[in-house]
Design a protein around this nucleic acid. Structure first.
Length: 725
DNA sequence: TAGTCTGGGCTTTTT
DNA sequence: GCCCAGACTA
């Protein structure tokens, strides 16, 4: 057993708290993972809790793995033996397991598959076509968002509000989409939570069984739980819960995914006996970085202020730099890294470059390539979303769950084998008419069992279909005794997939290499069943793909950076429209979340922080001039260093007007108005405040006037009279 | 049926 | 500037 690391007073208070509801509000770098792992170990060794009765929910699989490792190190050999291990994983992974176990009580079989967003999108497109809706008017992505939002809020189809036509359309699609998922024996991410919620809500016996089984619950990143997750937690917790949650409302960055940091307050209300503990001492960053972080986040209204402190001393100032365009910006980022590594001040692996949107990684990757430096990039979607990977996974899913139509439609003619759109249409029509699943029709065709089928297709088409079905049946047989890797090899061989994908071009070669990579991943699951393999690759997160092996700089989005730390952090794209993103402009809550995102980025830094922006930037289409991020205004200049904004001559005239950016801190403005207030304007009459936001040095309000409709006004100009609020 | 071409639409973040 | 879907041609 490794000697226990020392805990400070608050950390110790949290770790040794008596059983019951505990809320730990943990500032960045305050040792929250350490507290969680030590709490788990404390439950087992000091309180005699059976490891199996502990459930700890983390945000990523990587965090779960890390925790499991650390917990095991803390346990004595005799505790490790016999009593099993605590259940560690993400909400989604935990639910996936419960669903497999309780499939008998759900409209699915235990062989169900999990659809990712591109699968969901194909299904929604199919539904839109079925319903004869105009795909141009009803965007599949939009509808999917609405459905996802409903599911995250636990809104059943019957309860879906159809107050507008748009909602009516969503409801119709939701209905068909849900039916289609079940017919395919498939679930989407949100369903994992929703079905388990329903399962526990509706079956008293199952609920009490799980309550007995999972008596000690711990939740990491609690500020990012959504309604479904919180409700699930309450169902599992029962009357006298041992519920230990750790979070930081200032780091809540998943509102768009239904997360609601107000769950933190809700928790205190729902469990009045909650013991709340604040962790404020930071063990990660220099004081300068903490000061920058605090200056940034303190501008957000309605939050509990925390005092972040460290005994690490001030450290170096934060460097601010402006480039001409995003390519120069990327080169500059690479320059910073090579300067630091050349001088021995940092290892390449110590450095991270963070950005708001994935699209920004492109310029960076090119810059690294130009400098012939290696890098690692975080992004599972990148890998598992690739065409060749999705193709092979479609085959594996079909073998596992033959009624998966989305995968069938993908695999049927990939690589092309003479089964075109017309044949597919015929097959699906037939399947619908007879009420028989397409897979069954294909199998029957292959076995020549059903003479009625013989006349549907022309001989040539029939041969193609029979060939496909034959191979498919063969693979299903092979799945039983062959390993996963040989199954993949067999699919590649029988479909001629390599010749299809590796066409001798550089791109083809890269695609083939990706398949080799998938094969390597599969090798690790060689001893497990196909089900677990498919499940874990479906639930993989971006962060999970980050390996520690390579000593190279990390490129990642600000979202993906959550929970990580680096000695050197470079945040690029500090421009209004990028960070904060322009889509958040007219929503004060959205701007507040962007600010938290920036805060998360800043607080990842241990020693050196660089903030980069560029004068010109390309969004969609032509490159345009951009303004420095409004968030830079909140940073006191004395904390900043480097080539300050406006000191360079980009384009004489265009630039001249911009040479005097004022970075001095403005007096923090508190909004005077709030949504819902009745106000009177001298000219426009009476109206209701819809939204309000602080924009630089003024408050911008959106008012819905009785006579004139919506107007955007500046508070200082409008002179509104407040009637009531 | 398969491969090429063109036009439109879009771009936040991800379990 | 990029990707996808549908149209068009061999």
């Amino acid at each position: 057993m490794t000697p226990p690391e020392n805990l400070n007073t608050s950390q110790n208070e949290a770790v040794t708290a008596p059983l019951g509801p505990v809320l730990v509000l943990a500032g960045p770098g305050s040792g929250k993972t350490r507290v969680l792992t030590r709490r788990v170990a404390h439950l087992i060794t000091a309180m005699g809790v059976v490891p199996r009765s502990i459930v700890a929910v983390t945000f990523t699989n990587k965090a779960a793995k890390e925790m499991s490792k650390r917990v095991q190190e803390l346990l004595t050999p005799d505790t490790k033996a016999g009593d099993g291990l605590p259940n560690l994983g993400t909400f989604h992974a935990l639910c996936a397991r419960i669903i497999r176990q309780e499939a008998d009580h759900l409209p699915l079989t235990r062989d169900y598959v999990i659809y990712d967003d591109s699968d969901q999108l194909s299904l929604v497109r199919e539904v839109i076509k079925d319903l004869r809706l105009d795909p141009k008017q009803t965007r599949a992505g939009r509808i999917l968002n609405a459905i996802s939002k409903a599911k995250n809020e636990l809104i059943e189809l019957e309860d879906y509000d159809t107050d507008t036509y748009a909602h009516e359309v969503v409801r119709q699609v939701y209905d068909r989409y849900q039916q289609a998922l079940l017919a395919n024996n498939a679930l989407d991410f949100d369903d994992l939570l929703f079905w388990v919620f329903r399962l526990l809500r509706d079956h008293d016996d199952i609920r009490s069984a799980y309550r007995r089984r999972f008596q000690h619950l711990l939740v990491d990143e609690f500020q990012d739980t959504n309604t479904a997750q919180y409700s699930l937690l309450r169902l599992l917790a029962g009357e006298s819960p041992d519920l230990f949650v750790v979070g930081d409302p200032d780091q809540s960055i998943y509102r768009w995914r239904g997360a609601d940091y107000r769950n933190v307050h809700r928790f205190q209300e729902d469990y009045p006996q909650t013991l709340t503990i604040l962790l404020e001492q930071n063990y990660r960053s220099t004081q300068t970085i903490l000061d920058v972080a605090t200056a940034v986040i303190d501008r957000n209204p309605r939050r509990q202020r925390k005092r972040l402190f460290t005994d690490r001393g001030p450290g170096t100032p934060v460097v601010l730099h402006e480039s001409y365009n995003e390519n120069d910006e990327a080169d500059f980022a690479v320059d910073i890294i090579s300067t630091l590594t050349d001088s021995g001040e940092a290892d390449p692996g110590d450095c991270a470059v963070m950005y708001r949107t994935n699209a920004q990684s492109r310029a960076l990757e090119e810059a690294f390539l130009r400098a012939s430096l290696s890098y690692r990039i975080v992004g599972a979607q990148r890998f598992y979303g690739r065409r060749e990977i999705k193709d092979l996974i479609a085959y594996l899913r079909l073998i596992h769950n033959p009624v998966d139509r989305v995968s069938l439609l993908r695999a049927l003619n990939t690589p092309p084998r003479g089964i075109g759109a017309k044949t597919v249409k015929l097959l699906l029509e037939n399947s619908r008419q007879r009420g028989v699943d397409p897979a069954k029709i294909l199998f029957a065709l292959a076995r020549e069992k059903d003479p009625a089928l013989m006349d549907i297709f022309t001989p040539r088409t029939r041969r193609a279909l029979v060939n496909f079905a034959d191979s498919w049946l063969h693979w299903i047989e092979m799945k039983v005794d062959g390993g996963l890797v040989s199954l993949i090899d067999l699919i590649i061989e029988e479909t001629g997939y390599r010749t299809y994908i590796d066409d001798g071009t550089e791109e083809g070669e890269a695609r083939w290499e990706n398949i080799q990579e998938l094969r390597r991943v599969a090798y690790e699951y060689e001893d497990v069943d196909l089900a677990s393999f498919l499940e874990s690759i479906a639930l993989i997160s971006d962060q999970d793909t980050l390996s520690d092996e390579q000593n190279a700089p990390t490129l990642l989005t600000l979202h993906a950076a959550k929970g990580l730390e680096f000695p050197v952090v470079i945040i690029i794209g500090l421009d209004d429209g990028v960070l904060p993103h322009q889509r958040s402009f007219d929503d004060p809550e959205g701007i507040a979340e962007e600010r938290r995102l920036f805060y998360v980025g800043v607080t990842r830094t241990k020693d050196r922080l660089y903030l980069l922006r560029s004068f010109r930037r390309r969004f969609a289409g032509p490159s345009t001039l951009s303004e420095p991020s409004r968030f830079l205004h909140s940073i006191p200049p004395k904390l900043l260093d480097g080539d300050l904004l406006g000191s360079q001559n980009w384009e004489q005239t265009a630039y001249k007007q911009k040479t005097t950016w004022d970075l001095s801190p403005k007096i923090p403005l508190e909004p005077q108005y709030q949504p819902g207030m009745r106000v009177r304007h001298k000219v426009f009459g009476e109206g209701i405040v819809m939204s309000t936001r602080i924009d630089h040095d003024d408050e911008e309000i959106q008012v819905e006037f009785e006579e004139l409709g919506t107007k955007h006004l500046d508070a200082s100009m409008a002179q509104l009279e407040i009637l009531d609020g």
